[in-house]
Lab assay of single mutants.
Amino acid sequence: DLSALRVEEVQNVINAMQKILECPICLELIKEPVSTKCDHIFCKFCMLKLLNQKKGPSQCPLCKNDITKRSLQESTRFSQLVEELLKIICAFQLDTGLEYANSYNFAKKENNSPEHLKDEVSIIQSMGYRNRAKRLLQSEPENPSLQETSLSVQLSNLGTVRTLRTKQRIQPQRTSVYIELGSDSSEDTVNKATYCSVGDQELLQITPQGTRDEISLDSAKKAACEFSETDVTNTEHHQPSNNDLNTTEKRAAERHPEKYQGSSVSNLHVEPCGTNTHASSLQHENSSLLLTKDRMNVEKAEF
């Protein structure tokens, strides 16, 4: 173990290094160091905050020279020094078990990766560091076993998940096959086929009936047209017969005018059967003409 005197000496050296690497504005270890034209180094955030307070150039807090945003430059070497100082402080805390008085939040800088452990060898070769390295080497064999167990647990979990997924996939297939086998029997399929065939026959029977009705309507229309044509021909046949009657009536009127007047009046009210309204109107006109002729003949006879 380190003596108290040596611990104090190391602590004083760390404090001196820390004062050199402090920012003059925030009085902390410089984060993202930036250098000016006057070779003074500050935190990048502190300098941008200072420049944004005034429009135009501002003055350096140490030498009062003008500073602009374009004049600022990043210093990589200074950032490396800060990183190495942080590593020294971490090693000091691990070796002594004491917390550094002016320690900052170094938890963000710590890294437990194997590459980081290899890099620590180049920091300080001390008894405390050696003991700590031995402890780490002793704890390393235990870690692979834990990793193997965790991997086995994960693989077993994956296997159970896969088996569950396969079961879920197989179950719908089985149910679907069961439904297909038990849903419709052979008799049901035959009945469905016969039902479809009967429906098709009914459709075939319905369509000819409609065509037959249309044919019957067409035949009825044709018969009505033929009947009207026969009526017209009958009226045409009746007209010459009426003319013959008129000639006979004229002759009778010349011989017996008194008797014919009474008979002509009675004939006005008689309509021949089986004739249309057109034929009756023609008869009325003929009878009126005959009456006028008879009157003329009677007057001539009187004179």
Rank of each mutant, 00 (worst) to 15 (best):
E249D: 07
K44T: 07
S139G: 06
T230M: 07
V34D: 13
Q173K: 04
P61T: 03
T36P: 01
R130G: 12
D218V: 14
N15I: 11
C26G: 15
T248I: 03
S58A: 02
A301V: 04
E22D: 05
N12D: 15
V270M: 10
R77I: 07
S113F: 07
F78I: 11
K167T: 00
D200H: 03
V82A: 08
D66V: 04
S280R: 02
T211A: 05
N131S: 13
K64N: 13
Q138E: 05
Q18R: 07
Q80H: 03
T235N: 01
L158V: 11
E202V: 00
A133V: 05
S150T: 01
R132S: 05
L289V: 04
E226K: 11
L94P: 14
L137Q: 05
Y260H: 05
V121G: 08
S126G: 10
H269N: 12
K300E: 01
L268W: 00
G262C: 00
L50I: 03
V153F: 03
I41V: 06
E299V: 00
K49Q: 04
L51P: 13
I41M: 15
S288N: 06
C90S: 07
T166I: 04
H40Y: 12
L146S: 06
D294V: 13
E254V: 00
G56V: 05
D119E: 11
I20F: 07
G97C: 09
S150I: 00
F45L: 06
S216G: 08
T211S: 15
V34G: 12
K31M: 14
G262A: 10
K55E: 04
I88V: 12
C273R: 01
Q209L: 00
E99A: 14
I123F: 10
P141T: 07
D39G: 05
G182R: 11
R212S: 02
P114T: 05
S228F: 00
A91T: 09
K19N: 03
A253V: 11
L86W: 02
E180K: 13
K250T: 01
R135G: 11
N246I: 05
H278Y: 01
F92C: 15
E142D: 12
D95V: 15
E74K: 12
S126N: 07
T233R: 03
N52D: 09
E28D: 10
P141A: 15
N15S: 08
T189S: 01
G262D: 13
G128V: 11
E187K: 08
Q168K: 14
S219A: 08
E142Q: 07
D218N: 11
E84V: 15
C26W: 15
L29S: 10
Y104H: 12
R132C: 01
L151I: 05
D213Y: 00
H238Y: 00
C90Y: 07
P240L: 05
K250N: 02
A279S: 12
C273W: 00
Q138H: 06
L5V: 08
T96A: 02
P172S: 00
E9A: 00
P61L: 06
K31N: 10
V7L: 12
Q261P: 02
A101E: 04
S185F: 07
A107S: 01
E84G: 07
E115K: 04
E258V: 01
K31R: 07
I14T: 13
S3P: 15
I41R: 09
K167N: 11
N157D: 13
R132H: 02
C26F: 15
E285G: 02
S263R: 01
S241I: 02
L94R: 13
A301D: 11
V177I: 00
V82F: 11
C23G: 15
P272L: 00
Q201H: 10
L5R: 13
G262S: 13
R135S: 03
D188G: 01
N143T: 06
S264P: 14
Y104F: 09
T277I: 02
F42I: 02
N286K: 11
R169G: 09
E302V: 07
A220S: 00
K49N: 02
E226V: 01
V153I: 00
H40Q: 11
K259E: 11
P208H: 06
D231E: 03
T248N: 06
S216R: 04
N131T: 15
G199A: 03
V7F: 02
L146F: 01
Q209H: 14
I30M: 08
E8A: 06
E148D: 12
N131Y: 09
L86M: 08
A279T: 14
S152N: 12
L5F: 04
L151H: 13
P257A: 00
T76K: 11
D213V: 13
R70T: 03
M17V: 05
L146W: 09
V121I: 04
R77S: 14
E115D: 12
E99Q: 06
C225Y: 01
H256Y: 13
E202A: 11
